[in-house]
Nucleic acid binder design. Structure first.
Lengths: 191, 191
DNA sequence: ACATCACGAGAACGCTCGTTCTCACCAGTG
DNA sequence: CACTGGTGAGAACGAGCGTTCTCGTGATGT
């Protein structure tokens, strides 16, 4: 088997399994089985489980953000709609049957107390996402605070949808985001 | 040693360790050492690690909510201030040096994929918290949606404060909550 | 005083899991 | 054809951990 193909199949298997069951719950042998790869090959490409974890998080980070931005670019016309389109994308995500939260929040919850690598990955991912929201809200003419506030709504929606098991938080967050966006547009916050 | 005292010391140790390092990262022997209790006693009081985990989450649930409600009752005068006082309490919490997120979100991230018991505990805890916020916002005369929206802000603040390592999200969330609360007070949402 | 019982301390057991090693096999090279 | 080197399949190793067992000891009841 080609090396690149093997890498991809390993990362696909790791992503499915790590996300579904947690990182510590999935052994390297299970990933080997799911990827259809030999253990030797697995350790050649990822010398330790930590390396595989890092690659998993890195790939998921870029893919996830790319998916959001692609949806925003494709579906929204006005700057305000671009902000709100993020919540439509979230609702789609929450509706997928295997959804159970943000992989980075989950990883942080599982290993944040022991792995600085996971903390750094989560921080990087959230920084990038929040910066993107800030960019969108600024483009929509909102006050400086609104980006962070809308980021909090999005984060809250992710964990609430995961724990409650329903996609409803996406719509509630969207509604709140619309209010924050339209009411503060162009005005100083005045607080 | 008294049985009740042993229970308490075990739960104290388990809470410190589970919260700081994660559940799977902490062995029963470490809890035994920290509690100053024999392994025999530990298993007499909590026949399995799962039982100990359940007791830990149950106690933390009631204590956490009690702490919030106590602060709200003690510090806030008007119904609106009672809602916003929740975010002051959050800021205090975020500022504690050992803060790294909501124990239930972390537990869910760690074991949500494999333990229905943890899922149920997290759901119960979040249901109770969100119901409390709903109660506060209703008492403040806000529209029906506002409770859920403010809950999303609080949840987002918890995870964002944990991952970013700063307490700032509490103030951002409070600002947004104040807007949602005052702007929607007494009006239909009109969306 | 003697039998009984509970308990403290820690060893032991069985399992999981990350990682490495063994061994047979096949491809290419002189 | 011999030789070398890489590969596949899986066994093996070593550590960690949840749980139980052993053993020595001291308290209790009669």
């Amino acid at each position: 088997m080609d090396t690149d193909l093997a890498r991809e199949r390993i990362l696909d298997a790791a992503e499915d399994l790590f996300y579904a069951q947690g990182i510590q719950a999935v052994g390297m042998d299970v990933i080997r089985d799911a990827a259809g790869v030999t253990l030797r090959r697995l350790y050649q490409l990822f010398p330790s489980k930590g390396d595989l974890l890092g690659a998993y998080l890195a790939r998921r980070d870029t893919r996830w953000l790319h998916s959001v931005t692609t949806h925003v670019d494709a579906s929204a016309r006005t700057p305000q709609e671009r902000v709100l389109a993020v919540f439509d994308w979230l609702e789609d995500w929450f509706t997928q049957p295997d959804y159970h939260g943000c992989a980075f929040v989950n990883s942080f919850g599982e290993l944040g107390g022991t792995s600085p690598q996971v903390v750094a990955a989560a921080r990087h991912h959230k920084d990038a996402f929040h910066a993107y929201l800030q960019e969108l809200t600024t483009a929509a003419g909102a006050a400086a605070d609104v980006g962070a506030q809308i980021a909090l709504l999005a984060e809250g929606a992710m964990t609430t949808a995961a724990i409650s098991g329903t996609p409803a938080p996406a719509r509630q967050a969207k509604k709140a985001a619309r209010l924050l966006l339209t009411l503060e547009t162009g005005h100083p916050t005045g607080v």
